[in-house]
Design a protein around this nucleic acid. Structure first.
Lengths: 265, 265
DNA sequence: CAGTGGTCTAGACCACTGG
DNA sequence: CAGTGGTCTAGACCACTGC
């Protein structure tokens, strides 16, 4: 049907696992999982960039020498993980943080009344942006060594004039070389969108640890609350492909007018 | 192949939508979605009970007069929503809160060190259990009218001797008629498991709103912290089938030794 | 070994998008 | 209208479980 493309990239079905070592793991991997890994690699290497479309299912099926159904199942999983987005009749697109309707994809803070859209865009104020050496505390979640160079950024987000979020962000200095307070201030759009376009770093997944803490003097001033006021502490580690941590973020949220929303199933 | 069962329950493929009214919605529903609804109905009515296996894919395919692949896709979605659980070689089982390895499925509080299992089971202390009339605050999330009868339950959960969670639970009195403090105290296992077995109410999904608050006198005493201590306020609405709210729960969590864990993607 | 869920294929047709 | 993703089928075979 379709002509054969990229003869070197097609997978070999392996029913038998590697038998090296004392491996007790069967390690059977179905074809569609292997295809998924191959597509993932192309996403990682930037063969298809955020926002762009990837080849059609038929094209990929031809390229990998498998049926359309198998490619489909691979893409199903990538779609479920929000790595790609399908649009019927148009194609499959690499997910991005830059689209308007998925902005602040990782932000779970909602206004108590109305929804995010009724609130308008957040006003952002950069407090600080400096290069420094990572303490052990910061280095570990980023899988760096203490003393490695990191960028630290502090900012306040306000909604309708009310300062609501105080965030400290730590980034490994290497991948984010050249990031400045100025660039951040002049950029309109989510921070993760800037990371994509300027540094080629796609945040794919994140983990958050949430606690209740009392506002210290610095936080109290910036968030305009009394010292000791309870605040939501949100510590986020964000990962790019391959579970590689690329950002550590410590946020303090005011929850007198907003709440953190979570869905369980 | 298989003989035809339940001739009355097979769906009619409807490509054309209902055209009544000013309906602008195409309302096209694929076959597998219709099958999913039918399976859902059987789950709801209790044709298959929590923990039991449902008929095999082949049997369901015969019953609904569709191919195995179509049934499979319907079950795929139910499985993704945690309504059923598949086990290769064994069958598909109705999900339950009673299994050991999925206990406390909705509890996101984790110890800072170690994991949930290293901590051992929670010690539970029932403070109070009474029948009363719902205030507007309580009635609305449960879609009751103010003044309707509800059961209120207050309890403390402790981990390794340290009181950590103070919870107030409100339940509609109707479906939970007969629930007593004594029954709760003598039951060993998750509360939601008791709801399943004794009252036939399966919690399927929940929403949580999280805030930071200061401990009041009552909470401070029960959780053994100073008055004013920041606590995590977790307000949960839990739903059974059909998005019917069946429980309102307001928890106060100590987060000095534990944290609320969330995964974003 | 039979029965279950899980994978894979090939082909047909449908719904949606854009030129 | 051609091209895309979405649905559905029928049949083959594989991996896993328990008897």
């Amino acid at each position: 049907m379709a002509t054969i493309l990229s003869p070197l990239t097609h997978p070999v079905a392996l029913t038998a696992a590697s038998e090296a070592g004392a491996g007790v793991t069967p390690a059977f991997s179905p074809l569609y999982q292997q295809i998924k890994v191959l597509i993932l690699k192309s996403l990682q290497t930037g063969e298809w960039k955020p926002g762009e479309s990837i080849p059609s299912e038929m094209d990929l099926a031809a390229r990998f020498r498998v049926s359309q159904g198998t490619v489909r199942k691979a893409i199903d999983e990538l779609s479920a993980e929000n790595l790609v987005m399908r649009r019927q009749g148009k194609g499959t697109f690499v997910a991005t943080h830059a689209e308007h309707h998925v902005q602040y994809r990782f932000l779970r803070l909602m206004p108590d009344k109305g929804d995010t859209s009724s609130e308008g865009p957040a006003e952002r104020r950069i407090i600080d942006c400096k290069r420094q050496r990572a303490s052990a505390d910061i280095a570990r979640p980023l899988t760096l060594r203490p003393g490695d160079a990191v960028l630290q950024l502090r900012r306040v987000l306000a909604f309708q004039g009310a300062p609501t979020i105080l965030e400290d962000v730590w980034l490994p200095a290497g991948p984010f070389k050249g990031l400045t307070a100025e660039r951040l201030a002049t950029y309109h759009g989510p921070m993760y969108a800037l990371f994509e376009t300027e540094f080629g770093v796609r945040m794919v997944r994140a983990e958050e640890k949430i606690r209740a803490v009392a506002a210290d003097a610095a936080a109290a001033e910036l968030l305009e609350v009394p010292v000791g006021e309870p605040l939501l502490s949100v510590e986020r580690t964000a990962f790019t492909y391959n579970d590689l941590p690329m950002e550590l973020r410590r946020g303090l949220y005011r929850t007198d007018t907003h709440h953190y929303k979570n869905e369980l199933s």
